[in-house]
Design a binder for these strands. Structure first.
Length: 502
RNA sequence: GGGGCAGUAGCUCAGUGGUCAGAGCAGGGGACUCAUAAUCCCUGGGUCGUGGGUUCGAUCCCCACCUGCCCUACCA
C-alpha cells in the first residue's frame, strides 16, 4: 500500500474563507478521496495560521487576547470545509501546543546546525505587511504601497536564516528531482529565482510577541511564515513520533497557489535541509480563479463565500465546477454563467437525466429489478478506456481530465440507449442486456465521481440497489466491467440535479 | 525596472514544424419521446494577440511590441 500525504496551505485566520481557499481545499480533498479509492493510505491536512502582528492587533481591537480571538476565527474555516463536504484527517492550528513545540524543535535544530545567526536591521516597517520597505517604495512619502497606511521606523536585532548557504544544494536538488514542482513552468520559475541568488532572511521579530518564542532567546518571536510552514511536519509527529514521521515524510504533496511559490519551493526546502530532514517531495502549484461573467465581474475572489455558492448551486455542483473547469496548474475562469452552464449540461442533462431514464425504463420493462450487464456490450470497451483515462488523469493530479473522461462514458451511454431504444422493445433478454449495461455504467460512474461528488455518488449507488457505498470500492478492480450483480431493486427517485432556469 | 505565465471558433479551453487547426457549451437543421422541453444525429471554415525573422514550409522555433495577470525589486 502506498501512502498519500496531501496538504493545503494553512489559511490566515484574519481572512474570511472565500472561493479561492475553497478551490485549493476542494482539490486537496478530491485528490485525497481519489487516493483512498485506489487503496492508498491517506493523510489529508489543512488548518489555520494564527500568529503575527495583524492577528494580535485585530484581537486587540476586539478587546480580546489573541488566542481567544483566533479561537473564534479558526472554526470559520473548519465550518466552511465541512460545508463543502471536505473530509480532512486533521485540522492544525499554529497556536496549538503541539505546533509550538514542533516549531521550537525544528528551529532549534537549524540553530544547532549553524544556519541561524544574529544581526540587526533598521528600517521602515509596515505593520499590515509585516515587512520593511525601502523609502522609494513608499507612496506619498511614508505610506505603505499596499495598505496606504504610514510605515513605522523600527530597529531590531533579528535572527537570520542563512538561506544563501543553500543555493547550490537547492539547484542540485531541483536537478536531481525533475518532478518535485508541478507544473513545469512553476518549477522553472522557482529554479530561476534560486539561480538569481538567495539572500539570508530575517526570521524573528522583537517588536511583537504573538508568536512562537525563540527557545534560545526569549526576547524574540519567530516570523509568522517561518512558524507556519512547519505545520506540515508538526501534524505527522516531527520530533514527537519519529516512527510516524518517517512513514509520511518526505513523500508529501503540498498543494499551493502560485503566489506562495517562493515560500514553498525555496524557503521551505532549504529550511528542511538546514534542519536535517529531507525536503518535500511534491509541490503542486495551482493558478488563480479568474472572475468572469456578468454576475461576478464586480466581485473579487475574497467576497465570494463558499456558503453563498453551495446555497445557490448545491455542494456537489460547486465542487464539480471547481474541479472540472479550473485545471490544476493554470488559471481558470470562474463565473456564475460557467457554473450554471456546467450544471445544466453535465449534471442535469447528461448525468442526472441518464440516471432518470434508466431507472424509469428498468421500472417499466424489468419490473423495477435491475438486470445483469451484457459482457459483450460496446459500452464495456468504452468503460475500459474511460477508467484507464480517469486513473491516468487523477493520478497526474488533474481532476479535470479524470472527470472529462468520466463524462465520455456518460455521453456514450446516452447515445447507446438511443440506438437500442429499450423503451420500445418487448421485455426480454435483449432489453435486459441493454439496461443491465446501462446500470453497470451508472455503477462505474458512481465510483469514478466519488472524489468530486461524494454525496451524489452515494445516492446513485443506493438508487441502483447496491449495498454499501461507492467510497468502499477499490479501483481499478471495481471499475472492471460486469460487476453489477443484477436482481437488485432499482429506485426511480426525484431528479438528481433539477435543471436550472438561468 | 527585473523574472515568469497567458492571449486559438460566440464562450470556456485542447493541440501539433507541414494532408481540411480540435473538444465541450451556446447557435442552426433533423430525429425521437424512456427521461429533468432532457437525449441522439448532422452542422464549426476561426488573420491560431500585432509586426518581423529562421525555414522549402510555422499557430506551434527566435526577436520585438501590445494586452492581462503573478512574483520581485539599491539587503528582511
Amino acid at each position: 500500500m502506498s501512502r498519500f500525504f496531501v496538504t493545503t496551505p494553512i489559511y490566515y485566520v484574519k481572512d474570511a474563507p472565500h472561493v479561492g481557499h475553497a478551490y485549493t481545499t476542494v482539490n486537496a480533498d478530491a485528490l485525497a478521496r481519489w487516493h483512498r479509492l485506489i487503496g492508498d493510505d491517506v493523510f489529508f491536512l489543512t488548518g489555520t495560521d494564527e500568529h503575527g502582528q495583524k492577528v494580535a492587533r485585530a484581537a486587540e481591537e476586539q478587546g480580546l487576547d489573541p488566542l481567544a480571538w483566533t479561537d473564534q476565527m479558526s472554526p470559520r474555516f473548519a465550518e466552511a470545509w465541512a460545508g463543502l463536504d471536505v473530509a480532512n484527517d486533521d485540522f492544525i492550528r499554529t497556536t496549538e501546543p503541539r505546533h509550538r513545540a514542533s516549531v521550537e524543535r525544528f528551529l532549534s535544530a537549524i540553530y544547532d546546525n549553524g544556519y541561524i545567526f544574529k544581526d540587526s536591521y533598521r528600517g521602515l516597517y509596515c505593520v499590515g505587511c509585516e515587512r520593511y520597505y525601502a523609502t522609494d517604495e513608499l507612496v506619498d512619502g511614508n505610506l505603505c504601497p499596499d495598505h496606504r497606511t504610514p510605515v513605522e521606523e523600527l530597529e531590531e536585532e533579528n535572527y537570520f536564516f542563512r538561506l544563501s548557504a543553500f543555493e547550490d544544494r537547492l539547484v542540485e536538488w531541483y536537478a536531481a528531482n525533475p518532478g518535485i514542482v508541478v507544473p513545469e513552468s512553476k518549477r522553472n520559475e522557482a529554479l530561476s529565482f534560486i539561480k538569481g541568488g538567495l539572500k539570508d532572511i530575517s526570521i524573528t521579530r522583537t517588536s511583537i510577541d504573538w508568536g512562537v518564542r525563540v527557545p534560545w532567546d526569549d526576547e524574540h518571536v519567530f516570523y509568522v511564515w517561518y512558524d507556519a510552514l512547519i505545520n506540515y511536519v508538526t501534524a505527522i509527529g516531527y520530533g514527537e513520533d519519529p516512527e510516524r514521521f518517517d512513514e509520511w515524510w518526505p513523500s508529501v504533496h503540498h498543494i499551493i497557489g502560485k503566489e506562495i511559490i517562493r515560500f514553498h519551493c525555496v524557503w521551505w526546502p532549504a529550511m528542511c535541509m538546514a534542519a536535517g530532514i529531507e525536503p518535500p517531495a511534491h509541490v503542486q502549484v495551482h493558478g488563480w480563479l479568474l472572475l468572469g461573467g456578468d454576475k461576478m465581474s464586480n466581485s473579487s475572489v475574497n467576497r465570494i463565500t463558499p456558503a453563498s455558492l453551495t446555497e445557490e448551486y448545491g455542494v456537489d455542483p460547486v465542487r464539480y465546477h471547481l474541479l472540472r473547469d479550473i485545471p490544476l496548474g493554470s488559471d481558470g475562469e470562474f463565473s456564475a454563467e460557467g457554473i450554471s452552464s456546467r450544471y445544466n449540461s453535465d449534471l442535469a442533462n447528461n448525468l442526472g437525466n441518464l440516471l432518470s431514464r434508466v431507472t424509469t425504463v428498468v421500472g417499466s420493462k424489468c419490473g423495477g429489478v435491475g438486470p445483469v450487464p451484457d459482457p459483450s456490450s460496446r459500452l464495456a470497451d468504452v468503460a475500459g478506456t474511460v477508467v484507464a483515462d480517469a486513473v491516468a488523469g487523477w493520478g497526474a493530479s488533474r481532476p479535470d481530465l479524470g472527470l472529462e473522461a468520466t463524462w465520455r462514458l456518460i455521453r456514450e451511454t446516452n447515445a447507446e440507449l438511443e440506438i437500442a431504444e429499450p423503451w420500445k422493445a418487448e421485455p426480454g433478454p435483449g432489453v435486459d442486456a441493454v439496461l443491465g449495461s446501462a446500470l453497470e455504467v451508472l455503477r462505474i460512474v458512481a465510483i469514478l465521481i466519488v472524489p468530486a461528488m461524494p454525496a451524489t455518488a452515494r445516492e446513485m449507488w443506493r438508487r441502483i440497489g447496491l449495498e454499501g457505498t461507492p467510497e468502499e470500492q477499490r479501483l481499478p478492480e471495481a471499475g472492471s466491467w460486469g460487476r453489477y450483480p443484477g436482481g437488485l431493486t432499482v429506485e426511480k427517485g426525484a431528479p438528481l440535479f433539477p435543471r436550472r432556469k438561468d
